[in-house]
Nucleic acid binder design. Structure first.
Lengths: 331, 331
DNA sequence: ATGAAAGCGCTAACAA
DNA sequence: TTGTTAGCGCTTTCAT
């Protein structure tokens, strides 16, 4: 049997209420009794039972994080941001992978709620009314990170993907490429759609006639980049620059082009997205859009603490800044 | 106020014990009452409170995972293995980062225990008697993954690092390199020490006189590889092959050599470790030791479930197989 | 400053 | 098959 608060109380000749007070650093305890109680706690090796505490106080100091896939370089960095801030505010994280599966997401939200988390951090492809309904079946605060909310009802942290893609494409155009190509996942992920929108806006603004063959909208991995560029370079009219939706695809494009005997950036310039560590671990190094992944997580967690403490929140939908870095894959 | 088991019982005209039975799929319930109760549960949207359940049953169906750093490609893959098996057995994971800091590790174990986890998965540099003491201050099972236990008391999942390093080095020697070089983190991480031991064994077995300049034993990142190879190639006698302790360092070595005008594998052959996704995302692709990261996590979690269910365990210290893959960075 | 006592929502004997 | 009841270990009024 474990030591309980009751054992400590008996041993210290005080009531359990007093022990509870010293454990919770309540100031209404005479210094001498506090000292005595602490001494007994240390001696007996008393460890408060957080479950009992949670039941009595209705606070568990744990928050649920639902993410698509922790093994992705993007989300693991983001989760690190979440974790660090959570630790800072004394929360623990229950982490679950959804694989972007809606049913799984809905079910995970339910599990989190059963476990009485104090708040939920959600990352996924996009929020539907069903998600919102599931969230509101309990009254815990929810914050979205890097996730699009078509219902526009939930607090969120994002960057402006459309604008970032616009800027990257425009940069390529200004470097003299009349019609950069585009390789990115499809519109099922809202951020991909935003990227495509930004890409199109830059093209349109430059008065270019859109060539649909130049937009490859499927896949998301290194291989998608590898194959995408091969497809593009087998076209009768070949692109001279490619903007990709992720660094991984960007690296794939660089290698795919090199495998075909092209030189980067001489024959073809490449621009990535995210600024993952990988972007500097390739030759030439990859120019890319800096997306502050760690900060996305950290700010989301910070925002969640505000809601959990019922602090006032001035801005519920935060857009974090992005910026472009030019490296070896562009001239 | 939330719906409780009591509300459901009243509404369904049964006792809370009966509701508890249907929720827990106890078979001692007449089908008709079961049906009635389920109907009420659905109608009222009853959601069992896992915290109360945990207090009463002394089981939380959550396990704690302590890892060095979730943003590392190695651990995030491993955690994915843990997560998948945990989900399969209906457990949730509380994830925390220790940054290999011993005090933090000890404190995290304590937090996990306070939260009454049913088991702990620990990953770290190495286990000391203090760790063991902290673990045994409660009676929850612990399993180590990819972690060395000098006390040799805890169940663990590992691969044979010494043997793997031996094989990789030997392969390089057999390819005609008299004295391959070695770049790897230092002995503070036990697996690094094992790698070094294996490297030395292959060298010794081949009757080579050890050249200490050829073993760089610091750092762990891409940059360490980059700088390590530059140092090696500035030596009066230069190595013609390098074995590194991680793929990231291996890729760094490839790029560092290329930056200096050397060709891989013509002038210098490179062998990595881990078989992370990165090893195929470089030109030439990296030959490496396949370490089954996902499996390390999955098997560790599976083993933990056995301990938690008090099933019999035949082998508490599991060594998973490794193997070498040759790719473009070796001839 | 301290204590008594009533829950928190559930499980698990034990009875019936 | 079902119900009664006593906790699980703690927080939190309310008294004192």
């Amino acid at each position: 049997m474990n030591i309980t608060i009751y054992d400590v109380a008996r041993e210290a000749n005080v009531s359990m209420a007093t022990v509870s007070r010293v454990v919770n650093k309540n100031s209404n305890v005479k210094p001498s009794t506090r000292k005595k109680v602490i001494e007994v706690i240390d001696r007996m090796g008393y460890r408060p039972n957080a479950v009992a505490r949670g039941l009595a106080s209705k606070k568990t100091t744990t928050v649920g994080a639902i993410i698509p896939d922790i093994s992705s370089i993007f989300y693991s960095e983001l989760v690190r941001g979440i974790e660090d801030i959570a630790t800072m505010y004394n929360y623990n994280i229950i982490l679950t992978n959804s694989d972007q599966n809606k049913d799984k997401e809905l079910q995970l939200i339910n599990t989190m709620l059963e476990k009485q988390v104090d708040g939920i951090l959600f990352m996924g492809r996009n929020i539907t009314p069903e998600h919102v309904e599931q969230f509101s079946s309990a009254s815990v605060p929810v914050v979205l990170a890097a996730t699009y909310d078509e219902t526009n009802e939930l607090p969120s942290i994002n960057i402006d993907y459309e604008e970032a893609a616009y800027e990257a494409t425009k940069l390529l155009i200004m470097k003299g490429h009349e019609h950069p190509a585009f390789i990115c996942g499809n519109e099922h992920l809202q951020s991909n759609q935003f990227k495509y929108d930004g890409y199109l806006r830059a093209l349109t603004e430059a008065g270019v006639t859109i060539n649909d063959d130049f937009a490859i909208r499927e896949g998301y991995s290194y291989n998608a980049g590898l194959e995408g560029i091969k497809k593009l370079l087998s076209l009768p009219v070949k692109p001279t620059a490619v903007f990709t939706g992720s660094d991984e695809m960007g690296v794939g494009v660089i290698h795919g082009a090199q495998d075909l005997g092209y030189e980067v950036p001489k024959d073809i310039e490449v621009f990535g997205f995210n600024n993952t560590r990988m972007s500097t671990m390739v030759r030439p190094t990859l120019s890319t859009v800096i997306q502050p992944m760690y900060d996305l997580g950290a700010v989301a967690m910070r925002l969640l603490t505000k809601y959990m403490n019922k602090e006032e929140v001035t801005e519920a939908n935060v857009i974090l800044p992005h910026r472009l870095v030019e490296r070896g894959s562009t001239k």
